[in-house]
Design a protein around this nucleic acid. Structure first.
Lengths: 181, 181
DNA sequence: AATTGCATGTAAGGAGTTACATGATTAA
DNA sequence: TTAATCATGTAACTCCTTACATGCAATT
């Protein structure tokens, strides 16, 4: 498996939490890693099948009533591959921010347009902030403080909160600047 | 041209600053938009050719000594297309942060590994911060304060500075947390 | 009766990077 | 003379999303 095929490692990582189906994984990611990592079914299902062929995960078909779901679990080989990848220094994030690109070229458009964009961006940051707080509270209500994963989950949530706060601060500065134009 | 083909619009935007060649554009982006937008030659050259076919840009071959370079300029049609796109609300950024993904699964790896990753991340944030400051100073030395683009350039640089500061703050928190483990 | 949720998958296409190929010029 | 810079381009490949296709179960 290539060192750069990150979807595979994201999947293996999710399976260290608990065995689950592709459908469950999508939902779990949407509820936990959403603001820094998501996968679509178009990635998830084919790559789960590939990981099973390569014996990095095992599959078991389960019946929920009359419906069949394929529950995947990580194997020892999978754990080894994941641990290897986790030790590689993280690559730099893709640099592609549409909001910054649009503002950079803001001169070509009425001031009002730029203000609208920044207000939308601010709103999104507020929602991201709320969502991180909600997840943090849910973890505490569920008594996850003693889960060995808790520190790490806390760390990424702090990242979300601090990042969102910075974005809101920036938006406020920009609104000030643009409104006095 | 599709509303989502962002490379085309990034190119058109760069050409509102001044006419330039593909090579020059790559260099200019690396010196200005680098932390929020970059393009590779594999994108730049084919798309410049396509924009020329569609008359959104014009081309002129220039001789620098014996070397030929193709200098592109934006046309009125190009300006109209850009203005249209700039008015669309910016899409949300791709959510893919390798550092957060690795830390989220940090339990599967020795503490030392996670500390290394976060220290690398901190170092990168410091460099990004320095770089934004350097660009800001260069703009001021070049007397760009009265360029109609200046406010917008200032805004995105403030975004870079505030974002980098937030990352550094987060890294310091994480180092504290992980070192007392 | 209709909608939402559970559940799996594929096809097509756009987005993006890397490596390769070529060759002149300039500075150390 | 060697390396860096100027300069253009293509091919192969990975990555990723969206739309489509299917069908049962549970809720409203």
């Amino acid at each position: 498996m290539a060192r750069t095929d990150r979807t595979s490692y994201a999947i293996l990582g999710m399976l260290t939490i608990r065995p689950m189906s592709g459908y469950e994984m999508k939902k779990t990611m949407a509820e936990t890693t959403d603001y820094f990592w998501t996968e679509s079914y178009g990635q998830l299902y084919p790559i789960l099948a590939k990981l099973a062929r390569d014996k990095l995960v095992s599959v078991e078909s389960k019946l929920n009533g009359a419906r069949v779901s394929k529950v995947y679990a990580i194997t020892q080989r999978g754990r080894d591959a994941l641990a290897q990848w986790l030790q590689d220094p993280p690559g730099e994030p893709l640099r592609r921010s549409e909001i910054l690109l649009k503002l950079f070229f803001g001169q070509n458009v009425p001031n009002e347009v730029n203000l609208q964009h920044i207000k939308l961006h601010r709103q999104r940051a507020i929602e991201r902030h709320k969502n991180c707080e909600k997840i943090l509270q849910r973890l505490q209500q569920e008594g996850k403080q003693h889960d060995p994963n808790y520190v790490y989950w806390y760390i990424v949530l702090r990242g979300g909160l601090i990042g969102a706060e910075a974005q809101i601060k920036w938006c406020d500065e920009v609104v000030q600047l643009l409104e006095q134009k």
